[in-house]
Amino acid sequence: MVAFTINGQHQELDIEPETPLLWVIRDELGLTGTKFGCGIAQCGACTVHVDGQAVRSCSLQVGDADGKTITTIEGLSPDGTHPVQQAWLAEDVPQCGYCQSGQIMAAVAFLNEHPDPSDADINDELTNICRCGTYARIRAAIHRAAAIAKDAGGTP
């Protein structure tokens, strides 16, 4: 048995502990907002938060998530109004949209560490792939999200 909390709900699962967390999230729990892109932690489409840290869930065994707290895109905000989601909407970031759950989750964790990031910080730390090439808008949206959060008096 593996037990963890995901998007505020406690889960206990009878599952092989070596199963990647990604497939538990998608196929056991039906949270399909988290995407499969590469399976080797290269692209970041599967990014979720484990105890607040951005993790590429395709490469974390679910056994290692035992007792942890997990947040997926579905649990980021109750109404889709997290500052990063607001910024993504304002900057018209998504095209095909497939990688964007992972991009958003990576950006949220990044902004928690860098509330006022430079472009160099963004380039250094955010390595998620987008084949539609929305990077310029992602960069602009991250700066916008930082500003939204600052205006609201908190961190993103």
Binding site: G80, Q85, L89, D92, P94, Q100
Partner: peptide, 11 residues
Amino acid sequence: ARLDTPPKLNG
């Protein structure tokens, strides 16, 4: 604004 953006931001 693209009509398909909102569902692409919340999974």
